[in-house]
Design a protein around this nucleic acid. Sequence first.
DNA 1: TGTTATTCTGTGAAGGTTCACAGAAATATT
DNA 2: AATATTTCTGTGAACCTTCACAGAATAACA
Lengths: 339, 339
Amino acid sequence: MPRRTPKPITLHDVAELSGVSYQTVSRVINNHPYVSKDTRHRVLAAIRELDYRPNRVARSLATRRSYTLGVVTFGTNYYGPSQMMANVERAARSRGYNLTVANIDTLTPRAMLDIVDQLGGQLVDGLVLITPVLGISYEELVTLCAGIPFVMIDAQLGARIPSVVIDQRYGSQLATQHLLDLGHRRIAEIRGPLNWFGAIARHESCLATLKAAGLEPVCQYEGNWTAEDGYHAAHQLLDSGATFSALVVGNDQMALGAMRALHERGIRIPDDVSLVGFDDIPEAAYFEPPLTTVRQDFGGLGEQSVEYLVSMIDDPDTPMHQRVLHPTLVVRDSTRTLE
Amino acid sequence: MPRRTPKPITLHDVAELSGVSYQTVSRVINNHPYVSKDTRHRVLAAIRELDYRPNRVARSLATRRSYTLGVVTFGTNYYGPSQMMANVERAARSRGYNLTVANIDTLTPRAMLDIVDQLGGQLVDGLVLITPVLGISYEELVTLCAGIPFVMIDAQLGARIPSVVIDQRYGSQLATQHLLDLGHRRIAEIRGPLNWFGAIARHESCLATLKAAGLEPVCQYEGNWTAEDGYHAAHQLLDSGATFSALVVGNDQMALGAMRALHERGIRIPDDVSLVGFDDIPEAAYFEPPLTTVRQDFGGLGEQSVEYLVSMIDDPDTPMHQRVLHPTLVVRDSTRTLE
DNA sequence: TGTTATTCTGTGAAGGTTCACAGAAATATT
DNA sequence: AATATTTCTGTGAACCTTCACAGAATAACA
């Protein structure tokens, strides 16, 4: 039965069929008390008979609540952001919120404004920003969001923005210290693009940890998070003539590429070079060899950010703060004691 | 400036400030002709001054169009579905549509109904279903969607559903035939879960291709798409005592796990065993060795499905059909001639 | 100059729901 | 039995737009 836009059924239709007023039907739908058992049954029967579904748009207009959250992502192709988004969706839905997503290719105020224009206008009750890169200041953000409450995931650690972050400094410190503890002294670094907060944090913390041991990286390369670039990075580092016994890599994909390059050069892991990654993607345990890396709790990130955002929506006086989660080191076979 | 829900600005406010009627303001916003240059300027100035943003919810109510598409996904954690979603988002946005996502954990009619209830009610103009698994029949789907036009991505090949699919049979045939062409005769298979359309197609086509050569798989294993399970699969196959010179694997992640297991057993790739994957994830080129696999055009899938869906929304008489895209074989170093 | 076509602007209604209020019916209290 | 309380139900307005229509102003034409 093609059901050719058959005049949408409204409260009034249900009301008429069940012989009550539209308001009573509304009460039934919203589970208000003060509706007698008898009429409630009649109304429910009518709803079923007509296959009535409340018009959520009209409801939003009346209540000024859309029960929809917006999420703005930058780079859904990366593992981190896409995981965060999946977890935000789960958390939102479990609270009765829908999620509308908008990916952004270049993080400029202009692009952000377009998105907010698109998502604003009562379409979303709040915004989750998964834009872990530099580009827009907090003040700009507040202006851009035009009064829509927002929470940023993976913002700059210490930033005065409503946000939920993973302490990547700590994570990177774990990784670097791990190598130091194994006796490594000549350590090289492949970092992520330094317009990413995470890359900065990991990089600076790596530096700081080395410095505390009186060291500095023997050489560095700035990659773009991909396996492809990690591959080039490692080749480049080796070509530079520097020698190193350990390699700190900004994420697991780049680590994979680097491992491939090292293999090509006949360098054994971990015998000749130890290597740590970052993220603990599910595949990392099956790299050759299994990768020592830093695990991030993306699930927690999603859950916490939605909880925070919803509390801001419910009560605009929710104090601004930054929630910090802590990563853990997962030691596998890509690192070993320097002999 | 905390901007404490400062009474939303409406058409009427703008109208008052610029000394015209609300209707004229509406015309300006919607770029209707027949509004004089002069008043248009006045109105635009007022809009800027008040920082007015049209209420999209009210607009939706009036136009009965939300310009939002819904996407129902099953398993965003998998590479395929998450890629499809990203591409659907891009395609939707480029057409001025927002995208609301709903992930589903168990593909039952019940769960689907909940989602449609959540997304229905004029909230979305159409639905993209990325639910590449068995569970709901076409008839059920039509009923469930309650008149909302929908397109299914990666449905069963040949299914009489509005859909856009990749011909995975063809892809799997390419992979299997490639191994046959290299002289392999003892071929094992690690397939995906057989409640996935793709897994079925790849599996059956693998079988058919072997059969055409007078062969059948020496042994098989049904995995769950993860590297972890691919790892177990390979160990299991080897433990079974069967010998094989080539391995057809249902996706790249499982291939990764399998490669790891083979390495552990001292089996060299491709010297001792050739191996093909499926998907061509970006990392596949950096596996050890780089993986021969089948590339799927997820971008095309997203683009085509949105185009199709939008045309259904604009014209309900759009004929139902299934668009089929074709994958390609990417030969790398994990396969070689049998000596 | 008068008539017709074109451009511009405003009014009333509708879209489907919820909120605020008030009236009616049932129940409890004195 | 009369009153106060609670439970139940209905009416009008509001949420903010767009659509359909019609009236006013301007331009084009004879």
